[in-house]
Amino acid sequence: MREIFKFRPVSFSWVAIHPEPKGVIQFIGGAFFGTFPTVFYRYFLQELFEEGYTIIALPFRFSFRHWSIAIDLLKEQEVLRQELSEIASRLGYRQDVYQDKANYFWLGHSLGCKYIALLEFLSGEHWKQITESCVERNAYQQIETTISNAGLESASILAQPSLLIAPDISNTESAIPIRAIARFLDRVGLGVLPTREQTQCFIERSQLFNLTAMISFDKDTLAGSENDQFKDKQIRENSDVLWLIEQLKTRKFPILHKELPGKHLEPLGVRAGNYIVDLNPFDKFIKSLRCRMLEGYATQFLAQLRLRQSKIEDDSEPIKTVTTNLGNPELSKL
């Protein structure tokens, strides 16, 4: 059956339904660009679609209350599971894949990765005890009330793999670069919640994050890079990429990671002939597709995460390394 890459509105998302899906990718991008994911991330999402995935593009909603956004993403997944089955049935496509939660992947870029990390944390059985130890009592009560009002006490993304691209565990200063204003908002309780420090506390004390992969970029000054380990103390402390590598490398299944050439907005772009145009004059703007490795590594990491997922289900099977011939010798080094 011929694959037709076409986004259609479903619930609050945009969905490209694959006729023979091997999985479902739920994508959320970064601030501003993630508001129009079908435009700014079009090439990236189309390449993943052509690899055999149904794509759900979740438009970014700006707010300083990151808990509520993360929980809304979980609510959307529950709605879409039923909607996608019905649409696939009408189109004569495979529909069985949509009912099994294990077939869903989470993929984020920049701030979108923070929401995915919060959902992963909430999927652990000890999240309440950990939250109480990481935040003030009144903040914990607000979180519990938000989840209770959403009716999602038993819902989770447990055993659903996550691929984080240039993750930004945002603080108020990331959204408002004027430090005095950002600090004032934090003092009066109107800043970003959870804070970067609180989110790190959640991840550090959680037993999850075993099905996590990350792609970073060597010239990324927002999320950071693994090269930050050689820089001064302030840069090291502000590097979310470096912190996640250090924190998740000792898990039962260490984080899968690859650093590629590029800047923070590398995933953006639409195809123009043999070039990728990222619609951002402050980044690369235009680049030859022959130099682009992001989609190849993303596809391989998704396959490896699937193997880890089956390893968790059946601990008797050894994990195998997946390699794919994509015409680029660099990919064989994964």
Rank of each mutant, 00 (worst) to 15 (best):
I235D: 10
L45S: 07
K249P: 10
W243M: 06
I147D: 13
V15W: 00
Y275E: 15
L193W: 08
A88D: 08
V39Q: 13
I319W: 03
A175R: 12
I178C: 03
G296F: 03
Q198A: 15
A155I: 01
E330W: 03
I169N: 07
M293L: 15
S154N: 14
I276V: 14
Q46K: 14
K263C: 14
N138Q: 08
L279P: 13
D315F: 04
Y41A: 11
K114N: 12
E125F: 13
P254Y: 11
L190F: 14
Q26F: 00
I319K: 03
I215K: 02
M1A: 09
E295P: 07
S225P: 09
S13P: 01
K311Y: 13
E3M: 09
R90S: 12
D218T: 04
L222T: 11
G296C: 06
Y93C: 04
L111K: 11
C291V: 03
G30I: 02
E197N: 14
E86G: 03
R179L: 14
L80M: 06
V10L: 15
P267C: 08
R90G: 00
N328S: 11
P194N: 07
T323N: 10
Q229L: 07
I169P: 10
R196V: 00
A16H: 01
N138C: 02
G112M: 08
L164Y: 13
T195P: 13
I116C: 02
Y140P: 07
R183Q: 12
G327K: 05
N210Y: 03
E120A: 04
Q77K: 08
S63V: 09
T146I: 15
I17V: 13
S133P: 06
F5N: 09
L163R: 03
V135S: 14
G189T: 01
R196L: 04
H126L: 13
S239P: 02
E237L: 11
G224V: 02
L305W: 02
Q229R: 14
E20G: 01
D220F: 11
E313A: 15
I116Y: 06
Y297H: 08
G108M: 09
L73M: 15
I319A: 05
P59G: 08
K311V: 04
L211A: 03
L265N: 13
G29S: 07
E144V: 12
E83Q: 04
K284E: 11
E47I: 05
H257V: 06
V188C: 06
F105K: 00
S154F: 04
P254A: 06
S85Q: 14
V24H: 00
Y275Q: 15
